[in-house]
């Protein structure tokens, strides 16, 4: 399942997508410690799979929470994506 966490508003679309089919194969969930803002948490989803999700408090402000990792120039790889070894995490912006 592709789970999109975030929102769209008048300024654009801000979604962090987690592909849970890949996420559930990951033994260590590096995203949880890899994100400097601590946006990710581990849950047991509705289908009883152990997966990451963006925590509820962060979902309506991901644009701002992620801003520090997204400089306008010389953008390094995003820490959450670098820590996600199965490649389950993508950002829409």
């Amino acid at each position: 399942m592709k789970a999109n966490y975030g929102y769209l508003d008048g300024s654009g679309q801000y979604f962090i997508t987690i592909d849970t089919d890949h996420c559930t194969t990951c033994p260590h969930h590096g995203c949880v410690t890899g994100c400097p803002k601590g946006l990710f948490e581990i849950i047991v989803d509705d289908y009883d799979d152990c997966v990451s999700q963006v925590n509820e408090a962060a979902r309506k402000k991901v644009k701002y929470e992620c801003a520090a990792c997204k400089p306008m120039a010389n953008r390094p790889p995003l820490p959450c994506m670098a820590a996600c070894t199965p490649g389950a995490i993508t950002h829409s912006w």
Binding site: M1, K2, A3, N4, Y7, L8, D9, F15, K60
Partner: peptide, 11 residues
């Protein structure tokens, strides 16, 4: 079973 979802609950 859900394969993809998108929610808008900001407004």
């Amino acid at each position: 079973k859900v394969t993809n979802f998108l929610m808008n609950d900001k407004c």
